[in-house]
């Protein structure tokens, strides 16, 4: 049994909206993540999943509650926890190699050593030929791979991923899923992965944390006990997918009602028949 690495206790987060009304983004979040675990935070937009990630990253602070990483209370960003964002967030004036070296140079690592490490990681994400390329010359998938290399080269204990593949096309995403899974198996890092795509969560995680909206928080958690490397037609995954979809429908109906009006009701058959095809797109 691995040790508990990240512990969130009774986390609340409230924003004050423009009309001066409090907006409860997160209410009473209790979450424990073990070392080396791959956990997905799954839910529709507005459920606060990115907020949880940012709180763990130290980029935002909770309105109340405790957060401990490795037993220490955190007070800001730290390079033991690196975030990979949806848009890669590369620095456009630096070439690929300098982007990956950036964090190491901040740590005052010698240029030569940083260079060697960066090149090693770029080779692992299959970008060994693009060291001198600038971000504008790369495709979306390549940019994300640079961002992943830039995060992993820092050797963080925890990798936080905020919908990292959401902006990519399906083929690229599938390739990156495989690459991420094998990187995770190789390095044994703890990964927290925010997504709104059920299949993505099923393919990658040990545990899926299903989120709810209004107010945002945790609804249910599922252990994904399927063999790795994952196979999308695995009966465990297909079965779990149906269970999660049922739960999600309630949440989606809440969101859609708010957007389309109170009399809107979700056509249940619709979503089920399409779900085999591409269920992630509906959330």
């Amino acid at each position: 049994m691995m040790a508990d690495q990240i512990v969130l206790e009774n986390i609340h987060k409230t924003f004050i909206s423009k009309r001066n009304e409090p907006l409860h983004v997160l209410e009473q979040v209790e979450l424990t993540i073990r070392e080396g675990e791959f956990v997905s935070l799954l839910g529709p937009s507005g459920c606060g999943k990115s907020t949880i990630l940012n709180i763990i990253a130290g980029l935002e602070s909770p309105s109340s509650g405790q957060i401990h990483v490795n037993g220490r209370s955190i007070s800001g960003p730290g390079n033991d926890r690196i975030v990979v964002f949806q848009e890669a967030g590369l620095f456009p004036w630096m070439n690929v190699l300098d982007n990956v070296m950036y964090g190491l140079r901040l740590k005052k690592m010698k240029r030569k050593e940083a260079r060697e490490k960066a090149i090693a990681w770029l080779k692992k994400v299959h970008l060994g030929k693009y060291l001198d390329a600038y971000p504008y010359e790369l495709s979306g998938g390549m940019k994300q791979r640079v961002a992943i290399a830039r995060a992993l080269v820092m050797e963080p204990e925890i990798l936080l991923m905020d919908e990292p593949f959401a902006a990519l096309d399906e083929q690229t995403r599938m390739v990156l899923h495989q690459e991420l899974e094998s990187l995770w198996r190789e390095t044994g890092k703890t990964i927290i992965f925010v997504t709104h795509n059920i299949r993505e969560a099923l393919m990658l995680s040990d545990r899926i944390v299903l989120m709810k909206t209004r107010p945002g928080g945790i609804k249910k958690q599922y252990d994904v006990q399927a063999a790795r490397p994952r196979n999308p037609s695995d009966s465990v995954l297909v079965h779990l997918e149906q269970k999660i979809l049922v739960e999600l429908e309630d949440e989606m109906e809440k969101v859609l009602r708010e957007e389309f009006g109170i009399d809107y009701s979700l056509k249940k058959n619709n979503i089920h028949s399409d779900s085999r095809y591409d269920m992630g797109g509906y959330i």
Binding site: V83, P92, Y102, L106
Partner: peptide
């Protein structure tokens, strides 16, 4: 772009270092 600042902060940049290495060149 805020994302560049967030990316740099998550890697440990802060204060004037953040300005010198990210905000100014950006």
């Amino acid at each position: 772009p805020p994302i560049q600042i967030r990316a740099a902060r998550t890697m440990g940049a802060s204060g004037f270092q953040l300005f010198r290495t990210i905000i100014f060149p950006s």
